[in-house]
Design a protein around this nucleic acid. Sequence first.
DNA 1: TGAAATGTTGGGGCG
DNA 2: ACGCCCCAACATTTC
Length: 462
Amino acid sequence: MTTAIWWARRDLRLADNQALNLALNRADTVIPVFIVDPQLMDGSAPKRETFLRNAIASLADEMRTRGSQLILRQGEPIQELRRLMEETGAQIIIAESDHSPFAKARDNRAAAALPIEFTGGITVHPPESVRKPDGSPYTIFTPFMKFWKALPMAGDPIPAPKSLPAIPELTSIELPAAPPISDFPAVENFAYERLREFFHSSIFDYGEARNRMDIDGTSRLSPYLRFGLISPRVLISAIFRVIEETDNKISKQSCITWLNEIIWREFYFNILDHFPFVLKMSFRENLRSIPWRDMPSDLAAWQNGLTGYPVVDAAMRQLNETGWMHNRARMITASFLTKDLLINWQAGESWFLRQLLDGDPASNNGGWQWAAGTGTDAAPYFRIFNPVLQSQKFDPNGDYVRRWVPELAKLPKNYIHSPWQTPMDVQSQFGIRMGKDYPLPIVDHQFARLRTLQAYKSAKSD
DNA sequence: TGAAATGTTGGGGCG
DNA sequence: ACGCCCCAACATTTC
C-alpha cells in the first residue's frame, strides 16, 4: 500500500497534469494538497489572490466529484508537508517544478528535507533542455524559438482522470469565499471553452487583430496559464494540429504568430531560470545607470490612468478594474512610463505584478525589460512609442478609449486620441472641459522623447 | 512588436 | 516647349 502527496502549486488542473499523473501512477492513494503560504498570500496582489481562491475552490469541487478531496493547509510549506506525511504515512511528495528564484529556493529546501520529486509541465520544454550546443542558454528569441520548435514534444497531453482514489479523513482549512471574477471565471473547463472559442475563428485573424485594442482578437488565456488551469502543452499540441490543417497562408501565419507568443513565455521562463538577477537589475550591463526620474506624482498619474494621454489612461484603468490589459496596451503603457516619464521600469514591473491576474515574475519582467530596452533581445532604446500614433493605429475609432475613459466618450474620433487639441467650441459643444473633466498631458511627448534619448545615451557611455 | 528626420522622385502649375 | 518650383508620396537614414 503506497501513498503519495500531490502538492499543487500553480498547476490547478486535472487535465494534462504531470505531477498528479505521476502520483496516481506511483501510489494507490494520492493525497492532493494545496498549502496556503502566508509569504505568498500577503495581500500584495489582491486580484490574483481572488483568482487563486476561486481556482482552488473550483479544483476542490472537481476533485470531490471524482471521489477525492483537495486538502487545504496553511503555513510554512515544508512543515505542513512533513505534518501531512506523518498523518497519512505517505512515502513521497510529487509537485510540478517552478522556476522563479523564490520557488526554486523553497523547492530546494523541500528536496533537502523531504522525499520529493518534481515533474515538468509549467513549460512545454524544461528550461535546462533548451540550450545552445555549447550548453549555454539562449538570450535571443529567434534562435531560441527555432531550437525549441525542433525539439520533439515530450508526449501528448494527459486526459483528466475520470475518478480519483478516496482519501482518509484529514483536516482541511476553510478558505474564505472570494467573489467571482466576471471576465475570467477561475474554472478549468472555462479555459477550454475559451480556447475552443478562440480556435474557432479569432486565431485565423490573430496576425492583425491581436494589435487592435478595440477588438477581442486575443485568446485571453493568460490568467489560466498563470495558475495552470490549462497547460502550455495542451495549447501547443492544439495549435500544432490547427497549423497542420490550415492551408490559407495568412491564416496559417496567424496561427504561427500565436504559437510564437507561447514560445515567448517559455523564453522568459528560460531567462529567469538562468539569469535570476534580472529581477533586481537590467539584463544589459551598459544600461544600468540610466538617470531615472524619481517623480511619485507622475508615477501615481500613470498608475491611476490620469496622464492626459487617453490610450495610456484607458489601458491603466482597464488593468486596475479588471486585472487584465491588452498586450498592445501593455507595450504602450510601458513605453510611456519608461520613455515618456523616464521612470524606472521596476516601478512599472511591480505595479503590473500587483494588478495583473496573469502576473508572473518571468513574463512580467521580460516584458518590462523588453519595453525599457534593457533586457534580452529587447527593443532598441530609441524605439519610443508615440502614444497618439499608437492610439490612432490600433484603436482607430477610439472605442477602446471610450470604453475605459468615459469622460471622453462623447468626443468625436478626430480628437479622441489627443483631446488637448480639441477647440474650445467643440469642447463646449460636447460639454467637456480639458484640464477639468480630463487632465491635460502631464508631459509633452516630443520633449520627453528627446530627454529619454539623452538619458539613455548618457547611461550607455558611462 | 517605431517614429522622426532627411532624402528622392515625379506630376502639375506656371511664367 | 521648357525649366523651375512646389509638394505630396514614398524611401532611407537616424535616433
